[in-house]
Amino acid sequence: MPDPKSSRYMKSHEWVSLEGDEAVVGISDHAQREITDVVFIDLPKTGRKVAKGEAVAVVESVKAAFDIYAPVGGEILAVNDAVTQNPGLANSSPHNEGWFFRIKLDDPKEAEALMDHAAYEAFLSSQS
C-alpha cells in the first residue's frame, strides 16, 4: 500500500504514489482531518482522460463539498468502489483503504514537480 513518506503531494492536499507508469491518488491525512467526516465521494469514471490540476472528484463532508484535483495527467484506470460505498475510509485510512483512483501516467516526470513528504510537512507547518 502507498507509503505516505514516499508519496508526492499537491498544495491542495492530494497525494500520489507512483508505481511504474501508473499511480494511485488519494487525499492526505491532513486533508481528511480538516474536511472532517466524509459522507460522500464522487470519483471520475474509468477511462476518463484527465489533465494535471484538473478537478476530477468531489468529496462532501458536513454540508461542504470540496473539489479534488488530479496531481498528474493520464487515464483513469480504476476507482476505489470501497471508498465510494464507505466514504469514512477516507477519514480512517486516507493512505491505504481510502485511496481514490489509479491513473496511467501521461508523463511520469509530472510527479517530480510535486512536493515530497518533507516538503509537504514544511508546507503544512507554514500554513498553521
Binding site: I35, T36, K63, Q127
Partner: peptide, 10 residues
C-alpha cells in the same frame, strides 16, 4: 486559501 474545517467557516 488555507484548507480549514467547514465548521470554522460556518
Amino acid at each position: 486559501s488555507r484548507l480549514s474545517s467547514p465548521g470554522i467557516i460556518y
